[in-house]
């Protein structure tokens, strides 16, 4: 299944957040959306999955989702969005419950996805008892439980510390290499984009426009080799060159806004 973004524009009141975005997410790829903070990349992701209504343009789907997909467009959230009153098991079961699967099938699916994400021994724990990394693992398990056709990931690692981020990225990559679900991965972290993405779409800042799409031709599994690392370093510099100036403006603007309160 392919996702086509057609002339998407979005404004919050006077503020133009997105303008004239044309983009296609190819089947089985990971497309990273990067850009400085405030460039509207999370807004674009919300529009792509149909939880935000764009001011202009439309989102099209080419092809049908797989028949066994219970929720073709599935999000993984930056703040995990777990229900604190449900256990790990309960949180993963939540998106399955209204599909009339039957108790046995539901239990089987939950157990299967918990085993795949290494959460089986935590199934009765509550979110508050888990570390940030484990909470996001639950978020990933919940997303995988519905067999998504497209994963929409909104800065899934941004709330985690650097070590946890590294561990979780490896785990996610291992899961992805097995299933190869199409994914859109929003991040402001170039290292994450270069580790995971097949293509990197760079957004400019206010109004958010598509500046460039950079393809990374090295398979994800081979990116740890020295030769690949050298090539990735070159890509890193190129991407950084695209967003550095705007990132600087974005940073200074936040400071100015903060100062006006004082």
């Amino acid at each position: 299944m392919e996702l086509v973004v057609e002339k998407i524009g979005h404004r919050y009141g006077e503020l133009v957040a997105l303008e004239g975005i044309d983009l296609a997410v190819r089947e089985d790829e990971i497309l990273a959306l990067i850009g400085p903070s405030g460039c509207g990349k999370s807004t674009l992701l919300g529009i792509m999955g149909g939880i935000l209504r764009p001011s202009a343009g439309r989102i099209l789907v080419k092809g049908a989702p797989p028949a066994d997909s219970l929720n073709p467009f599935t999000y993984i959230f930056q703040d995990f969005a777990l229900l604190p009153w449900r256990s790990v098991e309960g949180n993963v079961a939540l998106p399955l419950e209204h599909h009339g699967l039957g108790a046995a099938e539901l239990r089987r699916r939950v157990a299967d996805v918990l085993a795949r994400t290494g959460l089986a021994e935590f199934r009765t724990a509550y979110p508050k008892q888990l570390s940030g990394g484990m909470r996001q693992r639950v978020g990933i398990a919940r997303a995988l439980a519905v067999n998504p056709a497209i994963l929409l990931m909104d800065e899934p690692l941004s709330a985690l510390d650097a070590q946890t981020r590294e561990l979780l990225m490896e785990d996610f990559l291992a899961l992805w290499l097995r299933a190869r679900t199409t994914a859109v991965y929003v991040t402001h972290n170039l290292a994450e984009a270069l580790r995971l993405a097949d293509r990197v779409a760079v957004l400019s800042r206010r109004p958010g426009r598509l500046r460039d799409i950079v393809a990374i031709d090295i398979p994800q599994a081979d990116r740890a080799t020295p030769a690949a690392q050298a090539q990735l370093a070159g890509l890193h510099d190129r991407l950084w060159g695209l967003i550095k100036a705007e990132a600087q403006i974005a940073e200074r603007e936040v400071i100015a806004a903060g100062a006006s309160y004082g």
């Binding site: 929720n71 599935t74 229900l83 998106p95």
Partner: peptide
């Protein structure tokens, strides 16, 4: 965000 999450899972 929890309500959005619920909506995102239909």
């Amino acid at each position: 965000n929890l309500i959005r999450m619920g909506q995102s899972f239909n």
